[in-house]
Simulated scan of single mutants.
Amino acid sequence: MPFIEESDLLELHKDIDKAQIINERLLDQIKFKNKELKKNKVQRNVLAGITGLFLIGTLAITSFTAGLSQTNYGAQDQYVLSDLDSLEAIKSRMDNLKTQNEELSLVKEYYLAKEFLEKEKIYSVQVKSFVDNNITLASEALTNTMFVKTNPFFSYSLGNFGTLQEAQRFREQLVDIGFQDAFVASYKDGKRLQIEDPN
């Protein structure tokens, strides 16, 4: 194991503290986004209900006026064209709501997966430890990473696997590309349980 200067350890500790603050801010943002998602879902459901009532009302009025004005064909054509325009607007709004619903579903799936990972025993390959929480190493595109406090260090791990064998295969790939000190560890509730056998 290489020798680390005390000044380097202090710098690493400062970096970990900064990253921990960033991580706490990100968690606060996630909580805020969850509240926003719930609020948007309620708004979407209310809007869908209002849209449905509007559509039913429009169809009821259209059928009622069509029955009364069968002799006046010019006026009936005007009502039909007006109703078709409003139906197109409703259809467009419903398509927008469907797109928003799909986006909300993706976010919900992400949070459900995160909750699952925190409750089940998983395996991950630890590639680095820092005295400071250096969260700047992670890209937002890397959703399959973990930062875990293992006193007095912060561990940086890649991959979330359901079986030890999957994690060991991934570790071998990481060793092949240069991460010689990588090892597999098991986690539950966001805490490391143990370091696993490398084979």
Rank of each mutant, 00 (worst) to 15 (best):
M1D: 08
F3E: 05
E5V: 05
E6Q: 11
S7V: 10
D8K: 08
D8G: 06
D8C: 06
H13C: 06
K14P: 07
K14I: 12
D15Y: 12
D17W: 11
D17N: 13
D17C: 09
A19M: 14
I22A: 14
I22S: 14
L27E: 10
Q29E: 10
Q29H: 12
K33P: 08
K35Y: 04
Q43M: 13
Q43W: 13
R44D: 15
V46H: 06
V46T: 11
L47Y: 14
T51P: 00
F54M: 04
L55K: 04
I56S: 04
I56R: 02
F64M: 12
T65N: 04
T65S: 03
T65G: 03
L68N: 11
N72L: 08
N72G: 10
G74F: 07
G74C: 05
A75Y: 12
S86N: 07
L87D: 04
E88N: 03
E88G: 05
S92P: 05
M94I: 09
M94W: 10
T99G: 13
E102P: 08
E103W: 07
L104I: 13
V107T: 14
E109G: 04
Y110W: 12
Y111T: 07
A113E: 10
K114Y: 06
K114G: 06
K114C: 07
E115V: 02
E118W: 05
E120M: 06
K121E: 02
K128D: 15
N133G: 15
N133K: 13
N134G: 14
I135F: 15
L137G: 11
A138F: 12
S139H: 07
A141S: 15
A141G: 13
N144Y: 03
N144L: 07
N144M: 11
M146H: 02
F147G: 01
F147C: 04
K149G: 02
K149T: 05
T150Y: 12
P152L: 02
F153V: 08
F153L: 11
Y156G: 03
S157A: 00
G159A: 01
N160R: 07
F161P: 00
F161M: 02
E166W: 01
Q168V: 15
V175T: 11
D176N: 13
F179N: 03
A182Q: 00
A185E: 00
Y187H: 02
K188V: 03
K188Q: 09
K188A: 01
G190K: 00
K191T: 03
K191V: 05
Q194C: 06
D197N: 13
N199W: 07
